[in-house]
Simulated assay, not measured.
Amino acid sequence: MGLEKSLLIGLRADDFRHPLDLQATNTLKQLPGLDVAIRSLLGNVAEQFFYLNNIASSVLVGEKQLPHLHKLLIDACSTLDLEPPQLYVQQNPVPNAYTFAMRGKQPFMVLHTSLIDLLTPEEIQAVIAHELGHLKCEHGVYLTMANIMILAAGLFPNWGTMIAQSLQMRMLEWVRCAEFSCDRAALLAVQDPKVVMSVLMKLAGGSPTLAPQLNLDAFIEQARAYETFSTSEIGEMLKSAQTQQLTHPVPVLRAKEIDRWASSPAYSSLLEKRKTGYNSEAQFKGEWRNW
Rank of each mutant, 00 (worst) to 15 (best):
A178V: 02
E227S: 11
V175M: 08
V175E: 02
P84I: 00
L11E: 00
K71M: 09
V190H: 04
L270V: 08
Q222V: 05
L41T: 12
E227V: 08
L111N: 04
K29F: 14
R103S: 14
L73T: 01
S78C: 08
G206S: 04
L167N: 01
M149V: 02
H130V: 08
Q213D: 06
L73K: 05
G140P: 01
M149H: 02
P93Q: 05
T161G: 05
H139D: 13
Q23Y: 10
G205S: 09
P249N: 15
T25L: 15
L216I: 08
A241F: 10
I116R: 06
S240F: 10
A13I: 05
L31D: 11
N44H: 13
M145R: 01
L66V: 08
L203N: 05
L132K: 01
A178H: 01
A97M: 10
T25W: 05
G277Y: 09
F219H: 03
L172H: 09
E47M: 14
L151M: 15
G10P: 01
K5E: 02
S207L: 06
K5I: 03
T276R: 06
Q168L: 07
E236Q: 13
A211S: 11
A24N: 06
A211P: 00
Q242T: 13
T113Q: 12
I234W: 10
T247A: 15
L52W: 15
S166A: 08
T247D: 13
Q242N: 12
T247G: 15
D192C: 06
Q91V: 07
I220H: 08
R170Q: 08
C177D: 02
R176M: 02
M197I: 03
L80P: 00
K202N: 08
L69V: 04
F108R: 05
L203Q: 07
E272W: 07
E47K: 13
L214Q: 03
F284M: 12
D117H: 10
L188V: 00
Q91W: 06
A266F: 10
L253C: 10
L8F: 03
L200Q: 04
L188C: 04
L246K: 13
R260Q: 15
S232N: 12
S268D: 10
D117F: 07
M109F: 12
L69M: 09
Q283I: 14
L115I: 07
A225T: 13
T161W: 04
L34Q: 12
P32A: 14
L216M: 10
E122K: 10
E221W: 06
A189S: 10
V89T: 06
L200I: 02
L28S: 12
M169T: 07
P121L: 13
H70F: 15
A225F: 14
I128G: 00
F16R: 01
D117M: 09
I74H: 09
K239N: 08
V141D: 07
N96S: 12
S58M: 12
K5G: 00
E123G: 03
V190K: 01
L271W: 14
H139M: 05
K71T: 09
I150Q: 07
V175L: 06
E138M: 10
E83C: 08
P212Y: 06
L7D: 02
V196L: 04
N290A: 12
L203H: 09
T144M: 09
L8G: 00
E281T: 15
V250Y: 12
L7N: 03
I74S: 12
C77L: 05
A101C: 15
L69R: 07
A178T: 02
P157T: 04
P84G: 03
A164Y: 04
A185Y: 01
G286Q: 11
V195G: 00
K256S: 11
